[in-house]
Nucleic acid binder design. Structure first.
Length: 639
RNA sequence: GCCGGCGUAGCUCAGGGGCAGAGCAGCUGAUUCGUAAUCAGCAGGUCAAGGGUUCAAUUCCCUUCGCCGGCUCCA
């Protein structure tokens, strides 16, 4: 008291203040208007409440409600308001944790009675009341002992458990009315700040994410600074649902997953199969170009193969049970690698032969727990675009670089230009030598750096047998799906005793690289459907053009046009039904067919077609040859 | 696997202890039509499956299967 501290403003100016000045006072003096939009302040790199007194020389920066940090604070306070509402409405609940998340917030409760959807409305209503009361949110710093007693007296055992794990002596508690929560902060000044929120769903969630613990009830919600932003968000969610590949898959007749067949097993319908066929053809052509050899291997094999590989021990949970064939156990394959190794080992290999790159569109089956299945994105049977590269240590870096560039080239061909890339390094349990790991990690890292694309390192997240690069693609609901993976493997070559004859005439062990570019065709197709909202670009579209007649009088000419297109390998359909043009266009539009070729009397007279693009644009009438040329150019550019 | 919700015609969905409903799609007929729905008629069902309660179950209860939202898991 009496002493002064030096404050550095956001604009760099300095001024002195008494030592108990609050962040609010300073921001107010700096810019009064700013106070209305600031939810907290960043002081010396730490977030503090506006009401916190500053005790030392500080660099201060207001946190705006619409900044990333501000929104997080805003939502975190919204989750506290929800918890208060729940505690008020349902007396016997205990609170667990309630953070802000990417699109909103959640809070986990331990409640003897499960929440039902109607409860959400009740809770929302109570939240409105709490917001209306504009209750001050106050911070109190307590010693751990005080905090333990405080939460103990309320029976909040989860909070006690959390307190016990906090290393510092002091903890902070945020209070609003009778509700108090253990929380690092910071928070909004009062509940009245919360303008727009909505509770979205109820779900079970294990305490601390561990399935051995009790399952709690989680309520998800979201909050935005304005009603408009909330509405926009909810609208975006609705729009995203329209792109859901499960919905579009049915509407566009692309695939089905049928109870009678079994959960997680995909049937590709003709239209979906055409897209898959095009993807596969493209994939094969590019693999030959990039020095791969394409192979085929069986769907079942003796279980011993997977005992040797180690999968039988490590991943038994995910393998289907063996079937007895003439007294020997066979299983349906969960991976392709052992077969590729067998092919490698079918004769003696020289170091001169390496690298050997075997690629296969291999269909594998893995048991996934029923709760995790999800359309095409998480299934029990799928086709990997798999490859195994056997190379010498000195070839590793170049091979990884090639694979990475190849992957990006393929993904870009399908219109995917942004990804999340992760480099996972050596975990605690690992096989192979430290030296090899270091070399492999360096090879992966340097290959990634050469692409210039940002990536994230996940320390210790590698598989036990080697480091890896994962590339994730985001779907429209912003869920990230792993497609591409590049993994170095020191383990399998050892287990199968994979060797090559070296320059010195002795046996050497090559390194194996596992890689999948699209991951699985099923998942990739699912992501593709959502990416394009079912409106596939011309080169992938199951039907590229449909010929629509105005009346039956034009049938003969329409048939000639159809034959011409078919003759040029254009996937065309002929709609000569006795229906009005408007209906035919509507139906073609709903099927998302790229081009509709309208043929009436005037087109027939001039021997032309009148194309209408999927966008709704009508093009100038053109000859069939001109249209074929247009299709060829567009297909070649993959637009 | 766990928590919650759901399962009715090919699709989207309403209904509800006492004869099972609509729209679209389908079929038949009429209509010959110019850029997102022509009109009329007909047909369509073990109400997911199995068990229980009841005079009576599609409806209420239990089990199983599947789907949806999460959790956990994901070589």
């Amino acid at each position: 008291m009496g002493s002064l501290i030096k404050i550095i403003f956001p604009d760099g100016k300095e001024r002195e203040y008494p030592a108990d000045v609050t962040a609010r006072d300073i921001i107010k003096e700096f810019d009064k208007g700013l106070l209305k939009t600031s939810v907290a302040a960043e002081v010396n790199g730490r977030y503090v409440d506006l009401s916190s007194p500053l005790h030392e020389d500080s660099v201060i920066k207001p946190i705006a409600v619409d900044s990333k940090e501000g929104l997080e604070i805003y939502r975190h306070s919204a989750s506290h308001v929800m918890a208060q509402a729940v505690k008020e409405l349902f007396g016997d609940v205990k609170v667990a944790i309630g953070p802000a998340i990417e699109d909103g917030f959640y809070y986990d409760f331990d409640s003897s009675r499960p929440f039902i959807p109607e409860d959400l409305e009740k809770i929302e209503k109570r939240m409105q009341e709490i917001v209306k009361k504009d209750i001050r949110i106050e911070r109190r710093d307590l010693s751990k002992k005080e905090a333990l007693e405080f939460f103990g007296s309320m029976g909040e055992s989860y909070k006690q458990e959390l307190i016990n794990e906090i290393p510092e002596d002091k903890v902070s508690v945020y209070k609003q009315d009778g509700f108090a929560d253990l929380c690092r902060g910071s928070h909004l000044p009062s509940t009245g700040w919360i303008k727009a929120f909505k509770l979205t769903s109820i779900a079970g969630a294990y305490w601390r994410g561990n399935e051995k613990n009790k399952m709690l009830q989680r309520i998800y919600g979201t909050a935005f600074p304005t009603k408009k932003e909330l509405d926009d968000y909810l609208y975006r969610i609705e729009e995203a649902k329209k792109r859901d590949h499960r919905k579009l898959g049915k509407e566009l007749d692309l695939f089905s997953i049928n109870d009678d067949v079994g959960a997680g097993l995909v049937c590709w319908h003709p239209s979906g199969a055409i897209v898959r066929g095009i993807i596969e053809d493209f994939w094969k052509k590019e693999h030959y170009k990039h020095g791969y050899q394409i192979i085929y291997t069986p769907h079942i094999a003796k279980v011993d193969l997977w005992k040797t590989s180690g999968h039988w021990d490590f991943y038994r949970e995910n393998l289907y049970s063996p079937m007895d064939i003439e007294g020997q156990d066979f299983i349906v394959k969960p991976m392709n690698c052992p077969f590729h190794i067998q092919i490698y080992q079918s004769r003696l290999r020289s170091y001169r032969d390496l690298p050997i790159r075997y690629a296969e569109l291999g269909t594998v089956y893995r048991f996934e727990r029923s709760g995790v299945l999800h359309g095409l994105l998480r299934v029990r049977g799928f086709t990997q675009d798999d490859a195994h590269i056997f190379c010498r240590p000195d070839q590793l870096e170049e091979e990884i670089g090639n694979v990475l560039n190849f992957t990006l080239y393929i993904l870009r061909s399908f219109g995917f230009n942004t990804y999340d890339i992760y480099l996972s390094t050596r975990p605690e349990k690992f096989v192979g030598t430290l030296d090899n790991w270091a070399k492999a990690e360096d090879a992966l890292r340097s290959a990634l750096e050469k692409t210039g694309i940002p990536f994230q390192v996940d320390p210790g997240e590698g598989v036990f047998y080697g480091p890896k690069i994962d590339i994730k693609i985001k779907d429209v609901l912003d869920r990230a799906w792993q497609c591409s993976t590049i993994q170095v493997d020191f383990n399998l070559p050892q287990r199968f005793n994979v060797t090559c004859r070296g320059e010195d005439g002795k046996e050497h062990q090559p390194i194996m690289i596992h890689r999948a570019l699209m991951g699985s065709l099923e998942r990739f197709f699912g992501v593709l459907i959502e990416h394009y909202a079912g409106a596939f670009p011309l080169w992938l579209a199951p039907v590229q053009a449909v010929i629509l007649t105005v009346t039956e009088k034009n049938n003969d000419y329409a048939q000639q046009v159809y034959n011409a297109l078919r003759g040029h390998d254009i996937r065309a359909e002929l709609d000569i039904r006795n229906e009005k043009l408007g209906l035919k266009i509507r139906e073609a539009q709903l099927k998302k067919i790229p081009y509709m070729l309208v043929i009436g009397n005037s087109e027939e007279e001039k021997r032309v077609v009148a194309p209408r693009a999927r966008s709704g644009n009508t093009l100038e009438p053109m000859t069939v040859e001109a249209f074929i040329g247009l299709v060829d150019t567009t297909v070649n550019s993959k637009q």
